Simulated scan of single mutants.
Amino acid sequence: MTTYVWDYLQEYREEREDLLDAVETVFSSGQLILGRSVRGFEEEFAAYHGAAHCVGVDNGTNAVKLGLQALGVGPGDEVITVSNTAAPTVIAIDAVGARPVFVDVRPADFLMDTSRVEAAITERTKCLLPVHLYGQCVDMAPLRELADRHGLVILEDCAQAHGARHHGSLAGTLGDAAAYSFYPTKVLGAYGDGGAVLTSDPEVAERVRRLRYYGMAERYYVVETPGHNSRLDEVQAEILRRKLGRLDDYLAGRRRVADRYAAELADTGLQLPRLAEGNDHVYYVYVVRHPERDAVLEALRAHDIQLNISYPWPVHTMSGFAHLGVPEGSLPHTEALAKEIFSLPMYPSLPESLQDKVIGALRTVLAAV
C-alpha cells in the first residue's frame, strides 16, 4: 500500500457518527444557506480566538480576496508578501487588482524575512500579508511597527496555522484581519471547501459579510457595492463546528507525530523544522530539507512512499505571474528551498505503523545518498 502525506479515512472512521449527524442536523433544519450552522460556527471560531467577528466564506482564496477588499486594498495598491507560499495567496492579491511585491524568506525556518520588508515599501504599498507557513507564525512585532509607522494594514494568511501561537497570541489575532482556509487537508479541515475572515474590527466584518453575499446588506435585492457569491456552505459549517471542539486534540496528535520524527531523524542529515522564537508550531505539514531531495524522493517511491513538495515552484517563477517581471535569482533563499524541501506524512490519525515505515525508509535512503 502506498503511503501518502495525508489521508482522512482513519479520521472519518473514528468520527463518522458525529459527521453524519452534522449532515442530518443541517438537512433537517429547514435552512440550507447561511443558517444556524454558519452563524454558530462563526461565533464559536471567533470565541476560540478571542476575536469579535468571524465571517464564513466559500474557500481560503476568497477569504484572502475578500479580506483584502474589506481592508480597502484594490487596483494600483501594492501588497508585500512572500513567493514561498501556495499560489492562491498571490492569486487573491491579483484578483483585487493589486500588485504583489515579494520579499525573501529566512533559510532557517522558511518564514517571511521581516527585516527585508521596509526596503520593499513604496508610496503604493497598502498592505502587509504575512503567510504563517507550514504551521508557525511570522515574526509579527516588526510588521506591526512598520504598518503603524507607514499607515498600512495587515492581513494574516492563516490557511496553514489554525491554533498556532506567537508569544502566546493565536495566529489570526495579530493583524487587522486574518484569512483562513478549511480545505480538507488543513489543521481544521472541512469535508469540502470552506474559509473565513477573522477580525475584531466591526466595519471590516460588515464589509466581508456584504461582499460574500453579492454586496447586499440585507438578504436580497439592494446591492450597495458589487460583491460575490462566496458563502460558507451550511453543511461544511456544521462539520467545522463539530471538529472545532476537537481542534486541540488534533494539534496534540500532530505534535506527537512531529516529536517522533524529530527524535528518529535527528541524525540523518535532514534539516528538520526549526521552531522560530516565541512560536507554538501546529505542523500543518512537516517540511524537511536535503540537498539531494529529488534523489531521496525517487528512492522513497521504491518503498511505496509518495511525498509532496510544498512548494516546488516559487510563485514569482510561474508563467502566470511573468507579468510581474520578478527575475529568477531575485529571491535566492526562496529559490534554493524549492529545490531541496519536501514534506513527510503529517496528520493526527497517522498510524504508528506508517510512521515506522516512513522513518525506516528515510533512514535507509539517506544512508545511501
Rank of each mutant, 00 (worst) to 15 (best):
L111I: 03
E123C: 02
A171Y: 11
E238V: 02
V187I: 15
H303A: 09
E264D: 08
D304G: 07
T125K: 07
T125M: 07
A190V: 06
R13M: 01
A98E: 10
E238P: 02
G163R: 07
R144T: 02
A178V: 12
G30A: 05
L362A: 08
R255M: 06
A266D: 07
R293I: 02
R293M: 10
A119P: 00
A338E: 01
D157H: 09
G195T: 07
L71G: 03
R39S: 05
F342I: 03
K243W: 10
F182G: 00
G56P: 09
L275F: 05
N84C: 10
H49A: 04
A46Q: 03
L324A: 05
N62H: 14
V23W: 15
V131K: 01
L170H: 14
Y214C: 00
L247S: 09
A367S: 15
Y214Q: 00
G163L: 07
V204N: 13
V315E: 07
R124C: 13
R293P: 02
E42W: 04
L362W: 13
V204M: 13
L251I: 15
M318S: 07
V131P: 00
H162Y: 01
D259Y: 01
D58E: 13
R16G: 01
A52T: 13
R363N: 05
A147P: 03
V79G: 04
E277P: 11
G67M: 08
E335S: 01
G175T: 12
P100F: 12
A190N: 11
S181Q: 06
D201T: 10
G245F: 09
A86C: 06
S29Y: 09
K243F: 06
H167Y: 15
G192E: 09
R165F: 08
N84S: 11
A295Y: 00
T199Q: 09
F342L: 00
G215A: 06
D157W: 12
L300M: 13
D157A: 08
T185K: 03
A108K: 14
I154F: 12
M140H: 09
A120P: 06
S353T: 14
V138A: 04
K186W: 03
F321H: 07
G30D: 07
E234R: 12
F321W: 15
S37C: 11
G151P: 02
V197H: 04
H303C: 03
G30H: 08
T3C: 13
L265V: 11
Y191A: 08
P226N: 06
G194F: 15
E44T: 14
D294V: 08
D18F: 04
V5T: 13
L129R: 08
A258C: 03
A171C: 11
D249T: 14
A367W: 05
S37H: 15
V257K: 03
L188G: 02
P351S: 02
Y12L: 13
V208F: 09
E42G: 11
L331C: 01
E43M: 07
L272V: 03
G329F: 08
H166A: 09
E206Q: 12
A262K: 11
D267L: 03
L247I: 14
E14D: 13
D201Y: 12
R274N: 01
S169A: 15
A141V: 11
C54T: 13
T268V: 09
R274C: 03
D148S: 04
G163F: 12
D248H: 15
E43W: 01
D104V: 06
L307T: 07
V365Y: 10
K357C: 01
K65H: 11
H49T: 06
V288Q: 11
